[in-house]
């Protein structure tokens, strides 16, 4: 095995052919690939490993900082230094916890506004950028009631949809993945279109179906809602228009949309396990920022009356 022998070359050819055969089988299979069983078995086995690894890895920056405090502690200065660092670490963890609580608060607020029944989950693993696809793994799975094609959101808006589900984990295809196509509706009008993504660092592209539609910078989008509410429930905020491209009167109008969700720092998300009974329309969008109207400055006239006897 140490040298490039004839045996090694036979092995190389064998494994390359196996890989190509697997790719072909999986590619031909499409959505009902015969390898889906192997995939879910792998999720069942490796999902718990990822959960443990994520639990160890997430406070790793804290751990790196506190390594410096692992002195022998024989003298007072070292002891106090260590104590100080421990307190600093606690302070940081406290800030992290407060941030999480705020995220959960936002999520519950959004779910309440749209009357979505959600299951909360955290992102434990993210796909490598070199794989060219934008997917994340959540720490909730079929045991928590998750099924493929459920809508995933967070406190800011639409995150994506559930692609595959394991017993304790689920994989989400983000709305910024080029394979994601989300049906959307402009706020207050019934203009419909769909957005497609170009990765987490880029804005979404919007295509409106009606070439005559009027779309302006600052227009806000919510999901239109898919048939049977899968994969997207209606009314979830998606983003706002930052620029309009294309000319009116052409087949379709296109625009660039900045998503509400920051896809580069996803943590707490909610999976819609039960869609709302009625379309929440624009109820979930945050209130429009009030533009500062020029308030008339009151003119105060003070008449100084000389006090008697003053």
């Amino acid at each position: 095995m140490n040298r490039d022998t004839r045996r090694t070359r036979v092995l190389l050819a064998l494994l390359l052919i196996t890989s190509i055969a697997l790719i072909t089988i999986d590619y031909r299979g499409g959505d009902s690939s015969p390898l889906d069983g192997v995939r879910s078995a792998a999720a069942a086995v490796f999902g718990p490993v990822e959960r443990v690894a994520a639990a160890i890895a997430s406070p790793v920056s804290d751990a790196v900082d506190s390594v410096g405090s692992l002195g022998d502690g024989r003298d007072e200065a070292a002891r106090l230094k260590r104590q100080n660092q421990e307190l600093k670490r606690r302070l940081r963890t406290g800030a992290l916890d407060r941030h999480r609580a705020q995220e959960l608060d936002d999520l519950l607020h959004l779910a309440g506004a749209g009357r979505y029944k959600i299951v909360p989950a955290r992102v434990i693993a993210i796909g490598t950028a070199q794989t060219f696809s934008w997917t994340v793994t959540l720490d909730a799975g079929s045991r928590d009631g998750l099924r493929p094609d459920m809508t995933v959101l967070n406190g800011d808006g639409l995150v994506g949809r559930v692609k595959t589900v394991g017993p304790s984990t689920a994989t989400v295809l983000l709305a910024v993945d080029p394979e994601s196509s989300v049906g959307v509706r402009l706020e207050s009008t019934m203009e419909v279109g769909f957005t497609t993504g170009h990765g987490a660092h880029h804005d979404l592209d919007l295509q409106l179906l009606d070439g005559q539609s009027t779309v302006e910078r600052g227009d806000r989008l919510v999901t239109f809602g898919s048939q049977g509410d899968m994969p997207y429930v209606p009314g979830v905020p998606v983003g706002s228009v930052v620029s309009v491209t294309g000319t009116p009167g052409s087949q379709t109008r296109t625009a660039v949309v900045s998503p509400y969700v920051d896809f580069t720092s996803l943590d707490l998300v909610g999976i819609v396990v039960e869609p709302p009974r009625a379309d929440p329309r624009d109820a979930v969008l945050p209130p429009r920022p009030v533009s500062p109207t020029p308030t008339p400055t009151p003119t105060v006239t003070v008449t100084v009356t000389p006090k008697p006897g003053g």
């Binding site: 997917t135 595959t164 689920a170």
Partner: peptide, 9 residues
């Protein structure tokens, strides 16, 4: 293993 979403192989 999750979150893989491409063709196996």
């Amino acid at each position: 293993v999750p979150p893989a979403d491409h063709e196996v192989g």
